[in-house]
């Protein structure tokens, strides 16, 4: 029996050597943002159902991790498409170019709203971005000076807000949602405080540090990347608020409600029209060099940019994607079909 096992092991090891040689790939590979993941997977599944091509494999690596893999090089060992919950950075384009990935097609697929939500039975609140900053930043301006966040209850910030403890469940630092929240809420709010504005002029770095630090004294609770868990916790605790993507609000609107930010509630229409302030565009990036090499990329992009997927009543809207405006959609669809590459 031992001899047999040894023989099988030898075969296994030999097969590794065979597998080691580069292989052609007949399946699209997508990496990147966990925010875009639910949408790209939905398109991938529809695309696979037509039966002409294999269903693309979609990995959720985070936007930054996705670009790292995407920019790794050209060839079947590297992914074809990268999902991103922000636009590609100049440094990432450079890194791509260094590895021979010079032609990148950018496609904006829609918007994602970041919501501040609470249990349905909790009091409905309307906060401004400045108030959110005061409630959640590590250091806030008080009487002209930056001090450790002194606010414990919401009504200390504004008497109109409820008399309850500040308790917000949100994503950890590794999350793109948190980056976007800091950029869209904190950075914007910080500039409206004269103390911080002054700091921006004198010391840009210190300003960035001041607005991008979230308090660590218990007012903001890192709840991990699992947004379903936040929803369950909100449902159990009417005093708590949670921060997550709009798709989780949409799927759970019988349990939780979105709070108004700057007087606008996070509804499908108001995020789409840009009235709701805390929203960001979502993108996919395609390696042009792989089109024609890996079968189906063109067809996949055609499926992604078709009205039945990213249109107003398409299946991506059902998954919580906020579609682009009609004109914008047409423009990006043309870019997707004609593979317009990024220029620096």
């Amino acid at each position: 029996m031992l001899r047999k096992t040894m023989a099988v092991a030898a075969i296994a090891v030999a097969s590794l050597a065979v597998a080691g040689t580069a292989h052609a790939r007949d399946q699209i590979r997508v990496v990147g943002s966990s925010t875009v993941y639910p949408f790209t997977t939905a398109v991938a599944e529809q695309f696979g159902k037509t039966g002409k091509f294999k269903t693309p494999v979609v990995e959720s690596t985070g936007t930054g991790g996705g670009f790292k893999l995407f920019c790794g090089g050209v060839g079947p060992d590297h992914p074809d498409i990268s999902d991103a919950s922000r636009a590609i950075k100049a440094s990432e384009i450079e890194n791509c170019a260094k590895n021979g990935v010079s032609e990148i097609v950018e496609i904006k697929i829609g918007y994602d709203g970041i919501v501040l939500a609470a249990a349905k039975r909790a009091k409905h609140i309307d906060v401004t971005r400045q108030q959110l900053f005061l409630a959640l930043a590590k250091e806030v301006p008080v009487n002209g000076k930056l001090v450790e966040n002194p606010y414990v209850t919401w009504n200390q910030i504004d008497p109109k807000l409820p008399t309850q403890k500040i308790e917000v469940l949100g994503p950890p630092p590794t999350s793109g949602t948190r980056d976007a929240f800091i950029e869209l809420v904190f950075e914007h709010a910080a500039e409206s405080f004269p103390e911080l504005k002054e700091l921006k002029k004198t010391d840009e770095k210190a300003f960035k540090k001041a607005y991008s630090s979230i308090r660590e004294d218990g007012g903001y609770i890192e709840a991990g990347e699992n947004d379903n868990l936040i929803v369950q916790k909100l449902d159990a605790n009417p005093n708590a608020f949670g921060i997550f993507g709009y798709s989780f609000l949409e799927q759970n609107e019988d349990k939780i409600q979105g709070s108004m930010v700057d007087g606008v509630a996070p509804t499908f229409d108001d995020i789409a029209s840009g009235k709701y302030a805390v929203s960001r565009p979502l993108y996919i990036y395609v390696k042009k060099a792989h089109v024609g090499q890996i079968p189906g990329i063109k067809e996949f992009l055609a499926e992604y940019s078709s009205e039945k997927s990213w249109g107003k009543t398409g299946y991506l809207a059902d998954k919580g994607l906020i579609p682009l405006a009609d004109g914008e959609r047409k423009e990006w669809a043309t870019k997707a079909t004609s593979l317009v590459t990024l220029t620096k």
């Binding site: 292989h23 990496v31 997977t41 991938a44 599944e45 269903t55 494999v57 979609v58 990995e59 959720s60």
Partner: peptide, 17 residues
């Protein structure tokens, strides 16, 4: 190693995703 991914097709060999 990329196994945390959305994979619809049932793998037929150990080389398939």
């Amino acid at each position: 190693i990329g196994m945390v991914a959305f994979i619809v097709d049932i793998p037929a060999t150990p080389l398939d995703p």
